[in-house]
């Protein structure tokens, strides 16, 4: 079956980790993830500037490794990301900001990508809050 998974919480929220473990279990179960979409505070889950203490589970790093390993389509909502200071190189240059914190493997794009994924998938599963 095909899943679209949307993440609405930052990496330090338990629900971001829960989304990651759900996504891993879905792939392990032989299912497909058509797209990961990061919206609202979920854009922070994709930030490359998170420094997690060494003895703690680094959720954003695990997201990055997971997306890279499985070559997943992972989209960060551009409007939500700009508002929260999550920028790739192109946007940082456009708005003349110093910090780039959204390196590959993420794509910045619009909410249409969430709808497209929901249309393609058998299930849309969202994670957010606590």
């Amino acid at each position: 079956m095909k899943f679209a998974i949307a993440v609405f919480s930052p990496g330090h929220a338990p629900s971001s980790r829960r989304a990651l473990l759900f996504a891993q279990a879905a792939l392990a179960g032989g299912h497909e993830i058509v797209r990961l979409f990061f919206y609202q505070d979920g854009v922070h889950s994709a930030s490359g500037n998170i420094v997690t203490p060494q003895d703690e589970f680094d959720v954003p790093a695990h997201w990055r490794a997971f997306v890279t390993e499985h070559a997943l389509d992972a989209v960060v909502c551009i409007a939500a990301a700009l508002r929260r200071g999550v920028l790739n190189e192109e946007e940082a240059a456009r708005y003349q900001r110093n910090a780039v914190n959204l390196p590959a493997p993420w794509d910045l794009s619009g909410l249409g990508q969430l709808h497209e994924a929901a249309q393609t998938a058998d299930r849309l599963v969202c994670f957010g809050g606590d």
């Binding site: 473990l21 891993q24 879905a26 299912h31 058998d122 849309l124 599963v125 969202c126 994670f127």
Partner: peptide, 19 residues
């Protein structure tokens, strides 16, 4: 567990997470 969570999400026709 998580595999059962995935199975539940497919057993029901849709998933409504209260974000």
């Amino acid at each position: 567990d998580y595999p059962a969570f995935v199975a539940l999400s497919l057993h029901y026709d849709k998933v409504n997470s209260w974000l």
